[in-house]
Design a protein around this nucleic acid. Structure first.
Lengths: 169, 169
DNA sequence: CCAAACTTTCAAAAATAAGTGAAAGAAAAG
DNA sequence: CTTTTCTTTCACTTATTTTTGAAAGTTTGG
């Protein structure tokens, strides 16, 4: 396979994966493009490579910056802004985990906490089923939460290294 | 908070979480409804509770069965089919992880493997950047894959228990 | 200031995904 | 069989998400 074909496949695969995980396809594609680019690109270049509009490129790049996956760069003597992606996959994974935890897991945990407090008739099977489901999901969510918090602090080698060691015992 | 209100909040929260993770909102809501229901429900009941059409209810229930999250039940002497959700959250988490691994991670790992083989000019920065990104993502993906495989075999207590123990050292 | 170069916004359009409901299909009862 | 009861399908509608592009906004150099 040639580089040009490989690039296209990579961008396509990353875009598809993103959309299966609730991330807009174009955003994942722009990220992929910047990931495999040795140097920072301008908005114009991103637009041209992926055939997307100026507005779309601008918004998408801004979102990637919000996620902490892309940075603006300025070249001396130039007016244009350049965009550059973080290349360390462990940092990428952490940023994504961090952002999604904040946006999605934290709110759900808050609601589950409230739902734990729902009062009702202990003789009512509907109430008991509700209560036990909520308690169990709450436990799982808190376990996931703690694991994520640990991961966010960890070094890659230490994190995966320790997990693997643990399973070899 | 009352049970009725709690139910609605739970269904709503579960639906929202689902849609943020690429799962259709109605599917997550039907799952939520069955999760907090002490007994199996009919298609009619699901339709009524969530105000959805027969077609939608039918397709959604079938999808949930495909994901291994819901089972059909037959009551003796009755024609109707009843649907019942697995209640053990650890089993739910495992089923979801298993299914998504199969549908999403495995294909991506396959493509990454192919992209590792792309040949090009070692002097070309574009080629080198591509190659190193692909290699790094490939490594991360394989780490995630191995961790998932282990998790799929594990017991909940052992899995989270071991992770926590590990981090207390 | 002003004009050129560049960036951001957002209402409208396009694309995609999800939901409906009536009709067709299946299975059990009589 | 054939009627009844229940389930599945799918062409069409509706809702949601994404993209566009032109206009407004901003920054910088002269």
């Amino acid at each position: 396979m040639e580089l040009a074909e490989g690039k296209l496949k990579f961008i396509e695969a990353w875009g598809k994966l993103g959309s299966e995980w609730g991330i807009n396809r174009t955003m994942a594609q722009v990220h992929a493009l910047l990931l495999i680019s040795p140097e920072a690109l301008t908005t114009e270049e991103v637009m041209a490579e992926l055939s997307i509009s100026r507005g779309n490129a601008n918004m998408t790049l801004r979102d990637l910056i919000d996620w902490g996956l892309v940075e603006k760069q300025h070249k001396t003597g130039e007016r244009k802004e350049y965009f550059f992606a973080e290349k360390d996959t462990w940092i990428i994974a952490r940023r994504v985990a961090e952002e999604r935890k904040k946006r999605e897991l934290d709110p759900v945990i808050k609601i589950l906490g409230q739902l734990t407090e729902v009062k009702g008739d202990e003789k009512d099977p509907a109430f008991m089923a509700f209560k036990s489901s909520v308690i169990n999901i709450n436990k799982l969510a808190n376990n996931v939460n703690k694991t994520l918090e640990t991961m966010l602090k960890a070094e890659e080698n230490w994190f995966f290294g320790s997990i693997f060691k643990m399973f070899k015992k």
